[in-house]
Amino acid sequence: MSGYIKNVAEMRPGEVAIISGFTDEQLSVKLMEMGCLPGAPVRFNFTAAFGDPICISVSGYELSLRLEEASTISIIN
């Protein structure tokens, strides 16, 4: 295992992972309020036409995020 931590922006459509943490404090609170919680499984559903924004499923909700926002969510899989 290297020191590099994967994030949601790097996932492929259909991929499932577990949220491990956040890299942007300000965004993390909003993400958690919307249901993105550390330890919760997250599924990368699909992207919009130009690859951005993306749609994910987490805690039973479908959320849309920009890639830069998704890249602040760290994952393990």
């Binding site: 993400l31 919307m34 749609c55 909700y61 959320l63 920009r66 926002e69």
Partner: peptide
């Protein structure tokens, strides 16, 4: 105010 998208896609 920072612009962000984080939004629900409701059923």
């Amino acid at each position: 105010e920072r612009s962000f998208l984080i939004m629900e896609l409701p059923t």
